[in-house]
Design a protein around this nucleic acid. Sequence first.
DNA 1: AAATATACATAAATTTCTTATGTATAAGAT
DNA 2: ATCTTATACATAAGAAATTTATGTATATTT
Lengths: 112, 112
Amino acid sequence: MANNKLYKGSLITIILKLLDEGGKMYGYEITQKVKVITKGKLKITEGALYPALHKLEADGMLDVEVEKVDNRLRKYYKLTEKGSKETNSKLQELQDYIKTMQLLVNPKFSLD
Amino acid sequence: MANNKLYKGSLITIILKLLDEGGKMYGYEITQKVKVITKGKLKITEGALYPALHKLEADGMLDVEVEKVDNRLRKYYKLTEKGSKETNSKLQELQDYIKTMQLLVNPKFSLD
DNA sequence: AAATATACATAAATTTCTTATGTATAAGAT
DNA sequence: ATCTTATACATAAGAAATTTATGTATATTT
């Protein structure tokens, strides 16, 4: 993703949040959107993205709708109700993670 | 660590930062310190911690010093100069990660 | 005509962590 | 006295997420 191991574990959160905003998106579109938003700093690889989308679908988080545009296939994904709840949960986990990490690395007060 | 996949990839950063503050610490001490600072939210397991310490040592980030206290063994680790630089680098990566993730999940402005 | 972009997919290998297990001493509880 | 918990290290099997490497196919740009 970015030669930065901290992104490990973040892919599902990113996908869910983009779908939460974007309404419905297809895989390739997600990779491009992430590139634009992060100004190229973060690149979602296909080898990570597609299995992640398949897993989210299998877990009932996403619904799929296949379309053919310019004779090319697109698989549009959108959040199910379950996926919408999961998005909120994942975003909360991200906020918790950030708070906890800042506790660990920003020792404003001595805690001994 | 916390049933939150976002912590994946964070262990090295946590260890390095604690050693940066603590001067020298031994493994068990690190697990306890993390528990205290995070009020029990984050627990470093031994199965993750010890291999991580060994790897950091092998990579020249840490120096070891064995001590015997109350007839029990302690392996004190401290940052080498290389490890000190790596700490700064890892902390920068954490700030970058947080900024990028906030860009992705806090769409203050429409970017289309 | 060749290279790049769009659009999907999977499989082997790697990395990181969990879970389980093992050894050994010290301290606290019953 | 004995059992449990705490202190202190260690490793190995398995799981999960991702990287890297391929593969197919059509459209667009050079």
